[in-house]
Design a protein around this nucleic acid. Structure first.
Lengths: 241, 241
DNA sequence: CCTGGCGACTTGTATAGCCAAGTGACAACA
DNA sequence: TGTTGTCACTTGGCTATACAAGTCGCCAGG
């Protein structure tokens, strides 16, 4: 169906997950896999490149590849979708729309999205009934028009947009800590000054065109963000604010 | 010197940086580059794979590759090394060792590092004289022994360890927000309860063996962390704490 | 028992070529 | 004018081969 090396990667991922190749064990050699699956060595190498980018395996010239860890599911999608993430934890996600307006873009929003008019959505997200984050998102006009047609309290925006053909491909996140202001405190039901984890996110489609610009604030004692990086696939930067 | 495709990637990165190929422009085709540089098309494709993993270019079947953004320097190394990062901002990094002891590992440390005895270092890091973070790091015995021989107030631990043959290859970071406790406040010179960005980090060598386990706390209004991810090279996970 | 060297195996890098599938510009046509 | 079809070009996917360089086990010799 899809490309052969993707199928093979999925197969190996599954084999790692089900314990055929536990962490610390060695994978079959390139030539063995190529013979067993009837593909060339080049295709097997493309497969390994995928697994390596995910941090699943280590490789060294001369030695067989080593399994480092079991695969984690869908990290990119999970990071963008509160609903997906919540369900993966066995929690029930919900939301409460505070406001959705179409308005002039602020200078920061115009800078991030490159448009003069934007849709702005404020939502409180709850995990099993408890408020844990505030979402303040500016959508590009084209996307915002679609968002306006979604029942944001019951549906997953991210999943609906995917069905409508909006593809989120890249995201840049900036994380820092801020004290809760009066509005945050009222929406989250915490004391003003409580430590919040702030995530500012700019998401683009596969061509690098901006789709959304969001500032989310999480209750510090309810949510953490984890990042995995490696010299091979480097993706992080520290920044002064 | 190094592999041809790495040289070519460095050359293209430089060309993007210096404006030869500004963001939004199109790169030469694979065949043109292969001919111009006297390499095969396969080698050119390896080059593009590197640039793509860094989020620098977009590619589509049938159309030439598009430049998305200018390259950022050294993200992985910068994230690990406070000194490198500070110098890249034009600031003067410094540190003050609070304590370095060899002791029994706590349960959490034993879990992260897999050893019973560890070295534990507490340091305050300053940016141009102002304290901005507290570093509390547990080193695996082998590495800690080397750290003990480093003048931690003047040298960069990370750079010294690299010279001594310790290679940091993968890191997993967990980020959340916490209020400053009494000790934090005293070390950073802020009020207790101030919002701090907490980064817990586990770093391993290329084979996945743990090297260090650190809990760093940043002044929220002085430092932020940025993360870049994409569907192609997915590296992030949100986590309940 | 330990050391050194040999050799089979494995991964890294590079080459050359093939076909499929998508893009984009241009020409012909209605 | 607007549409449609064609065609050169480009990237995606795959095969086959070659050699370099590193690893690991094994065996001979001290």
């Amino acid at each position: 169906m899809s490309a052969r090396f993707r199928d093979l990667a999925a197969e190996l991922r599954a084999a790692i997950t089900d314990g055929t190749y536990p962490p610390g064990s060695h994978l079959p050699s390139e030539s063995e896999l190529s013979e067993r699956h009837g593909v060339s060595r080049g295709t097997v190498r493309q497969t390994f490149a995928l697994l390596r980018a995910d941090g699943l395996i280590a490789s060294h010239q001369g030695a067989r590849r080593t399994v480092l860890a079991a695969p984690r599911v869908q990290s990119f999608a999970e990071l963008r979708s509160f609903s997906l993430w919540a369900r993966s934890l066995g929690e029930t996600p919900s939301g409460r729309k505070v406001a959705l307006v179409r308005r002039e873009a602020s200078p920061g929003e115009r800078d991030a999205l490159g448009e003069d008019r934007i849709y702005h959505l404020t939502r409180v997200r709850l995990l099993s009934g408890r408020p844990v984050m505030i979402e303040r998102t500016a959508y590009v006009d084209r996307v915002g028009a679609l968002v306006a047609g979604i029942d944001t309290d019951t549906e997953s925006i991210c999943e609906r947009l995917a069905e409508l053909g909006i593809v989120f491909a890249h995201a840049e996140h900036t994380l820092d800590a801020v004290p809760a202001d009066e509005e945050d405190a009222a929406l989250l039901g915490c004391a003003p000054g409580t430590a919040l984890l702030r995530e500012r996110r700019r998401t683009t489609d596969p061509d690098g065109r901006p789709l959304e610009w969001s500032e989310d604030r999480y209750l510090g004692d309810a949510v953490a963000v984890t990042v995995h990086n490696s010299v091979a696939a480097s993706v992080l930067e520290r920044q002064k604010s």
